[in-house]
């Protein structure tokens, strides 16, 4: 589903060149739950941004669902993001002056969907994350965990093929983090591929597979025993 071959990413300033990714080779199959770990500066977020078509890369080849991303223009990339990818961010990235319903509606607005279909998808997504009763609330009226669940609902409303989560529990306490993790697992069980960047080894162990990045390269691929993950939880 996701296949990166020799991907390199270099950030250049006048004084210095920083190699964020060095010939990264990485594949994720459909339906997997992959945790990407690594120390700060190892290239986790850069990998996620390139995977989500939010950033260009300097070299290599990236195939998404067999489609070579290098050849796509801005409009085609936007369409791909809209139709196949769902994003969950550490900082939630909700729009403060839109209520929950309208926040979940944001990605749907860039797809040619009828108002009725959008409404149906939004209600379904809010039901999945257990926030149907909060549809008319503003983000500021919700707890951090609830806000992240709204962000998950926003990612789900587009019915993506895979979800990219960047430290989704980084701003949450342990109870709320657990709830969010359970939601991600539930989404994955329904067939959505999940790629999660995390610092938290406990959360990483709950994924099907861990990818450890170091200095912009995969340093270790580790399959996690689901039984062990349950024991940790």
């Amino acid at each position: 589903m996701l296949d990166m071959q020799n991907i390199t990413k270099v950030y250049r300033t006048q004084l210095v060149e920083t190699h964020a990714l060095r010939e990264l080779n990485l594949s994720v199959a459909e339906g997997e739950f992959v945790a990407v770990t690594g120390p700060s500066g190892s290239g986790k977020t850069t990998f996620l941004n390139i995977a989500g078509l939010l950033e260009e890369y300097n070299g290599g080849r990236y195939l998404l669902d067999g489609q070579d991303i290098t050849r796509l223009n801005d409009r085609e990339r936007s369409r791909l993001r809209s139709e196949k990818i769902g994003f969950i961010f550490q900082g939630f990235n909700l729009i403060p002056d839109l209520n929950v319903f309208d926040n979940v509606d944001v990605p749907l607005r860039y797809r040619k969907l009828s108002a009725a279909e959008r409404k149906e998808r939004i209600e379904e997504a809010l039901q999945t994350v257990g926030l149907s009763a909060r549809a008319r609330h503003l983000p500021a009226e919700l707890s951090g965990g609830q806000q992240q669940r709204v962000a998950i609902a926003r990612a789900l409303a587009g019915r993506p093929r895979f979800v990219l989560a960047d430290e989704p529990t980084g701003n949450l306490d342990s109870l709320m983090a657990r709830q969010v993790m359970e939601l991600l697992e539930k989404i994955n069980e329904e067939g959505v591929t999940v790629i999660m960047v995390t610092h938290d080894p406990e959360l990483a162990r709950r994924a099907h597979r861990n990818i450890h990045l170091l200095d912009g390269q995969v340093s270790d691929l580790e399959a996690v025993d689901p039984g062990a993950a349950e024991a940790v939880a």
Binding site: L54, S78, R81, E83, P107
Partner: peptide, 16 residues
């Protein structure tokens, strides 16, 4: 800008 960045991430084109 953060709001516009989010819109880009979820599928908005530059033109939009």
């Amino acid at each position: 800008a953060p709001q516009l960045a989010l819109r880009r991430a979820v599928g908005a084109t530059r033109g939009a």
